[in-house]
C-alpha cells in the first residue's frame, strides 16, 4: 500500500495505491489523521483510482475520515472510476452522504 498526501488550498489530497484491507487500513488511518489533525485544512479528497482491492475495512476507513471532516466543518469527497471499488462504495450506502467524481481534478474543482 502506497500513500501519497498533499495539501492544496483548504484540501488534504490523499492518493491510495495498492490493496486496502484490514491489514493495511490501520497504518493508512494513522498517517491520514496525523496529517489532517496537524494542519489547518478542513477538507479531505480521497483518490481511490489506483486501488486494486478494497473490502469493508476501506468503508470503515472512509466513514471515520468523513466524521473527522464533519467535526472540522469540512467535506470529504472521493475520486474513483474503478468499477469494482465503486460497487462496494455503492453497496455500503456511503455514496448517499459522500460525493463521488471519476477523476481527482473533477473532485478538486467541485469541493
Amino acid at each position: 500500500m502506497y500513500l501519497n498526501m498533499e495539501i492544496l488550498d483548504n484540501n488534504l489530497i490523499v492518493k491510495l495505491k495498492g490493496e486496502l484491507d484490514h491489514h493495511t487500513s490501520e497504518e493508512v488511518r494513522k498517517k491520514i489523521d496525523k496529517q489532517y489533525n496537524g494542519s489547518s485544512v478542513s477538507n479531505i479528497i480521497m483518490d481511490l483510482n489506483e486501488l486494486t482491492f478494497m473490502d469493508s475495512s476501506g468503508i470503515g476507513l472512509i466513514m471515520g475520515r468523513y466524521r473527522n471532516t464533519v467535526d472540522k466543518r469540512g467535506k470529504l469527497i472521493i475520486a474513483c472510476e474503478n468499477m469494482t471499488i465503486k460497487r462496494i462504495l455503492d453497496m455500503s450506502g456511503l455514496l448517499k452522504i459522500i460525493e463521488l467524481y471519476p477523476k481527482l481534478d473533477e473532485a478538486t474543482n467541485n469541493i
Binding site: S25, S56, S57, G60, G64, I88, M91
Partner: peptide, 14 residues
C-alpha cells in the same frame, strides 16, 4: 473503536 464498518456479512451475502 476499530472503525469496523459492520458490513462484512452484508458484503459476503451480496
Amino acid at each position: 473503536n476499530l472503525e469496523r464498518s459492520g458490513m462484512g456479512f452484508t458484503v459476503m451475502e451480496t
